[in-house]
Design a protein around this nucleic acid. Sequence first.
RNA 1: GCCGCGGUGGCGGAAUUGGUAGACGCGUACGACUCAAAAUCGUAUUCCGUAAGGAGUGAGGGUUCGAUUCCCUCCCGCGGCACCA
Length: 1008
Amino acid sequence: MLKRFDACEIEKRWQKYWQENKIYDTGPRDTSRPKEYVLVELPYPSGNLHIGHWHAFAVPDIYVRFKRMSGTQVLYPMGFDAFGLPAENAAIKNQLDPKKWTEQNMLDMRKQLDSMGNAFNWEHSASTTDEEYYRWTQWMFTEFFKRGIAYRGEGQVNWCLCCQTVIANEQVHNVEDDDCCERCDSKIEKKNMPQWMLRITDYADRLVDDLKDLDWPEAIKEAQRQWIGRAEGYEIDFKLNVDDYDGVVVFASNNKSKCARLKYLLSSTKLKIDLKTPEEIGISDFKVKEDGETLSDNSLKKARTLANLIDLPVLADDTGFFIAGSNVDPVKVKRNALQDLKEEELSQDQISNLVLEHYKSLATKQGGEVKATWKHVMTLIMPDGEEKQVTANRPVILTNKVNGQIDHNLPIRSLYIVKATGKYANEQNDQETELDLQPITDELNKLFQNAISVFTTRPDTLFGATYIVLAPEHPYLTKYNNLITNREEVDIYLKNSLKKRDQDRLDISKEKTGVKLEGLSAKHPLTNEILPIYVADYVLGNYGTGAVMAVPAHDERDYDFATKFSLPIKPVIENNEEPLPFTQHGKLINSEKFTGLNSEEAKTKITNETGGKTKRTYRLRDWSIGRQRYWGVPIPIVYDPEGKPHTVPDKYLPWKLPEDVDFTPTGLPPLAKSKELLERTEKIFGTGWRPEVETMDTFVDSSWYFLRYIDHINKDIFSSTKAQHDWMPVDIYFGGPEHTTMHLLYSRFWQKVLFDMGLVTCDEPYNKRVNRGLILGPDGNKMSKSKGNVINPDEQVADVGSDTVKMYLAFMGPYEGSNYPWDMGGIAGIRRFLERFYGLSDHIKKDEPEEITRLLHQTIEKVTNDIPQFKFNTAISALMIFVNRAERLGLTNETYRKAILLIAPFAPHLSEELWQRQKSGSDTEKIDSIHLQSFPKANPDLLKSDTVEITIQVNGKKRGSLNIPRGEKEAYVLTAIKNDDGLAKHLDDKVKKVIYVQDKILNIVLEK
RNA sequence: GCCGCGGUGGCGGAAUUGGUAGACGCGUACGACUCAAAAUCGUAUUCCGUAAGGAGUGAGGGUUCGAUUCCCUCCCGCGGCACCA
């Protein structure tokens, strides 16, 4: 029988009681219990809670409560991601202060959240708009800037006309073939402008590789992999028919041993370069003070200074180390190595020794052997100011052992010729081999040679390459502009293709276009055949090397282009003498000495023959974070009168958002209109200094909030190591699939940067990720005001109560994955069930049948197994089965108490009400909250009944079933079948075989 | 086009180390209560068939005593990537 209850009254009363008694406070970390950090994506305080918020917060609350009752110390915090466009737009529309609007919304939303009755840890909260929060966002940005992770970049950006701001690549969504803004769904344009960027591409490999150890749904991992788009291929050089440089080059340092080293390397290339130090060409007093930026910046600065003094090419060289997969900042290493010593007072050798010692101690700390990647950056500055920069990576192992002995006298210069064998090699001895030096000599060759580097995954088709294609953005188009005889035609094409990019993507026809570069051609690296060079926009400037070798016989795009321009098509791969469809692998033909090899073998053999090498390339671009809007974290940068950016020093953080701003979007950043910000900047830094006027993407704010939750009032650091040891990593992160390639990627990157800086204790922030589905309107469509199918949770709660709404959301289906339509009948069913549960006490008896006792324990078992798998729907179903039977057969008080405990995570208010009524009928005397009790444990002896129903099949078809004692043998069942008329009639004498699975099935196979 | 996930009654879904397909809820039908309706309670509810029986987990094929579950081919839906070399 149903028994109505007043959900509203019960829920308000207990919510107040819980709050007053702080029953959900986690308290300090208690190491006698396991911990679990359960995180839900922090909401934007839009001012009204929608049903999606309920799905996002109330359902995981079931898990949290269950875990707490099971003895785990669970942290379940909540906060607000309160910067962002909606506040600003609302403020513009209604002429309000976004700050006040946001603060009011947070208050309103807090009330709504309270009405959920969730077991949140409000004592661990954070709001991204708090000055004490964004102060740390800014501090991290300044640290990132100092390390070169944050930089001012130039290039094509996504501009949202509606939001009047730049957005990141991840925030561009595809709607019916249009590039649209993630926030407002309006179309975006491409635009060239300087941008604040974060070097997420430096972390591309780790962001891919580290996915494998995460307990995330495969779909999300795969989406991230695809977004990063790592491709393993090969880089092959096609020399241009242009002379190589072969004169004097000045090395931008007076470090003689380093110069000698490079000379040695140059001699091993085929170049005729004469490398000289500044002293050797008569510049005696050459020194530029290093001022704390990265080593490569410093060396480049030196080279530029030098280049201004002379009329010769200048080579800048820089060496850095990556130890144990983590980026060891050479500047920081140097600083740590020198400690309190002044660099100016030391000789080059002394510095070298100190740095070497420091590296050695790092090596020792890591067990005497350090796997590392050695990165070498070289920049060539030509007399006309053109700069070409290359980097070479290769794995090395640093060790403090040489031939088993610890070598204490290792010179620093030897470090950059460390072999992949794990031994130090000395400059003077001949342990170096060409092989070890190959990456460096390759890079040197590149700097001085005039070759087009192409990226390919199919070097096995090299002999089928009949022409070369450059992307319109390729630097050679400007570099060799004076050699191109049909310059005008090329320029028109370049202009058109750039315009095309700015236009509607829909207008791009799939028809290939391009122009041949007259006067410029390339040499096939193996046949020395002269190949024409084209510029065509089907080759992308920002992928691979921006140049491809075209193999029209085996690539569809090249085929289309070759057909259109009547270029030769030369097949070089076949399979059983059949021509192959594009992109397939097979046996090589027409490939000189490689003919007859299969594709896989040929790939490395041909690449080696050309002197090419393997190369990784990525689809991922750096994260552009500058926004030309008001309501965000000001980027803590000021520009000196020369326009050079400097970080705002720590003591001026938080670098506050000015309030004297008209933030109507005009395309000009609103902060540029603030008098106060300008005055503040000049007052602190001096006349002529200018503030940065862009604010940060709000995804920056949310990239680290989980670190602040756990230590939210710390004034000294954004999150202490102690707090992180207590709670990090996040054990389960519940959220929506829309964040797969945005927030989830950004915050992983952010965490890794902090990890490399030694500021966080783990490399990955989230152990397990659970993506929930979407709640659709009753009509099965996405809820939207225009469709009029929006379910307002407040109305639902007023109608049936918070417990019912929460339980209904949990009952719709498994939490992970699917989208579910809201069903009014369905929620009524849950309410009926809870009313039934409310009336269950009417069925309490002195004794209960064994069936009920067993069923109770089976239900405990089922619920205990299902909740950790987020299969709340089947757990609730089990509870329903129990209540249905218990109503009919009656239950003891003891069983009743356990049933209330069992339902407590699902219906926290109702169960508390029933629990408290257990106590002697007195209303005033309170006993401990049900939510502080232990979850019931199933008695294994009661899980299995003595009899089982066994299915009887004949020839695999079900013919009936029998109730037999558990554990009986085959013979017993066969006898039982013979005694059962209904079953026996299906049998004749010709039994061929009997298959018996104990307690489950018996199948009799008859001969035909 | 490539990659990932999925396809089970009128609906949401349940059941996979291969062993009674459709738990639980919704909806529907009939009955009880009622002057009546709602609410509630009871019974039924995959389809075809009066029944015996037969068919049935996107389609087709295979392995097996037995397939929603494993394998192959294909179709459809959702999501991601896409002129990415």
